[in-house]
Design a binder for these strands. Structure first.
Length: 444
RNA sequence: GGAGAGGUGGCAGAGUGGUCGAAUGCACCGCACUCGAAAUGCGGCAUACCUUCGCGGGUAUCGAGGGUUCAAAUCCCUCCCUCUCCGCCA
């Protein structure tokens, strides 16, 4: 028997098609895909794509034919044996087939993995309404809300404000763990908690999301589903023992609720929210935002996820943006909304809005929320589908995610925007119930 | 952590090497019967991929991966998960 027998079933080869983009589109109109991807600065090698594809097709057909032949003959052997006939001649006939089949499978697997590697790196296609551009400088401002406050004293940043009584302590966190961590204490810790509570209440009670508590570690399948793996593993913290990863956002566990599910149409839209810590390695961000809690390895976030009928995903994107904006408006924090240009969008998104909150210390708007439609990109990876009662075949759902909001950055924004000349910080009206009615913190 | 049992289609549950993508029941859909319904009868009822203009044909999937074999739901190995008992623990 073949010593080089390759242990690969056809199913591996078929199902490993963990495509992100619609493979049919990729095959039928690679030029179109290439053109859309070019908008995000991504060059698709259509020539090698097409040659790979035609080889794959050839090999797959040949392999399946061999497989069929083997199946037919094996069945014949079974029948002959049952009938008490001599099966030796049949066995001899089938002799070569196994090796031939193994070779065919091996070849097919090779081509298939090349194809997989190629398409695994393809980001989603930007929506037609997304502005062209290479980086954040080309993002388009949609609107602004609120006016930055005019201070008649020199503003402090949140680091100085937090250091006043040691309520926000970065050195301590460095001792405990390392850089890019923070310890919050006393009223700041409480304010932080209040913010998360407030956000969660708003998203659940007013905007109709279901509150969820989820694992903060997930397996590789989940990360594959939402697109963090295989390409962006270096952004994650991985636990040696189990191979689990700490979640970089609750989008991962929440969206993966529907992985490998076929939902009833009546279940849509699914609206989920969770308050979780998020863990990011921030590899590649050395030296950026090193001061303060803008960019931390660990931060809290209230995340919103929607799983919707494809017909409604762009409506959902707009309303979800509104859900995020509602938090900033309730806190009376000035912000602006930008539509990310094609080159600045995340891997899986077709369209993304960023909410940027005003930071007096930096005299600029900084990202505090990102709201994206992924269309069927994640759904395809997750095999997340739904069924219309009238339609026979299940179809892919659309998924959206958005921060509502990043709690750490929101805390910092509150501290800085609500500071007073003496270093005290007013508590925004809507948060006071969460703080036992306290109207001011950080006062002498 | 120790001992044992188990993972099969939407659900329940047969199946221990061949004609099994998988009996049977329930659920669901269509048709017949009916004024209508129930009951009954007949039929249908997984997913992905390849191929075909289409009808259709093919391949794969019985927790996952690997092995044995001409042939694996069925035999062997590894892993994951669930359940029961004991221990430990928030």
């Amino acid at each position: 028997m073949g010593a080089t027998r390759v242990a690969l079933t056809l199913e591996d080869v078929n199902q490993r098609n963990a495509t992100m983009l619609d493979p049919k589109l990729l095959r039928s109109d690679p030029q179109f895909v290439a053109q859309r991807l070019a908008l995000r600065g991504f060059t698709l090698d259509t020539a090698s794509l097409e040659s790979l594809e035609s080889r794959r097709r050839e090999l797959q057909t040949a392999t399946e034919q061999l497989q069929n032949e083997r199946n037919v003959r094996s069945k014949a052997i079974g029948k002959a044996k049952a009938a008490g006939e001599d099966i030796q001649p049949l066995l001899d006939e089938v002799g070569q087939l196994g090796d031939e089949l193994d070779r065919a499978k091996a070849q097919l697997a090779e081509v298939q993995s090349e194809w997989d590697a190629l398409i695994a790196g393809l980001p989603n296609l930007p929506h037609a309404s997304v502005p062209e551009g290479a980086d954040e400088d080309d993002n388009v401002e949609l609107h602004r809300w609120g006016a930055p406050r005019a201070f008649d004293f020199e503003v402090r940043d949140h680091v100085d404000l937090g250091a006043r009584f040691g309520y926000l302590d970065f050195e301590l966190a460095t001792k405990l763990t390392g850089s890019r961590f923070a310890v919050m204490r006393g009223p700041i810790a409480r304010l932080h908690r209040a913010l998360a509570q407030f956000m969660l209440d708003k998203q659940t009670l007013e905007h109709g999301y279901e509150e969820c508590y989820v694992p903060y570690m997930v397996n590789a399948d989940s990360l594959m589903g939402t697109g963090q793996l295989p390409k962006f593993g270096e952004d994650l913290f991985r636990l040696e023992e189990s191979g689990y990863h700490l979640i970089p956002t609750a989008e991962v566990p929440l969206t993966n609720f529907v992985r490998d599910e076929i939902l009833d149409h009546a279940q849509l839209p699914l609206k989920l929210t969770a308050h979780t810590p998020c863990f990011r390695s921030e590899a590649g961000a050395y030296g950026r935002d090193t001061r303060g809690m803008i960019r931390q390895h660990q931060f809290d976030k209230v995340e919103m996820v929607q799983v919707v009928d494809p017909e409604t995903s762009y409506d959902a994107l707009e309303t979800m943006r509104g859900h995020a904006e509602a938090i900033l408006q309730a806190l009376a924090l000035p912000y602006r909304v930008v539509t990310l240009c094609a080159g600045d969008m995340g891997f899986g998104a077709t369209k993304t809005y960023d909410l940027e909150v005003w930071l007096p210390s930096q005299e600029t708007y900084r990202e505090i929320s990102s709201v994206s439609n992924c269309e069927d990109f994640q759904a395809r990876r997750m095999q997340a589908r739904f069924r219309h009662p009238q339609q026979k075949k299940p179809q892919l759902v659309h998924t959206l995610n958005g921060s509502g909001l990043a709690v750490g950055r929101c805390l910092l924004a509150v501290m800085e925007n609500y500071q007073n000349a003496d270093g005290s910080i007013d508590v925004p009206e809507v948060l006071r119930p969460y703080l036992g009615g306290i109207a001011q913190i950080n006062a002498e």
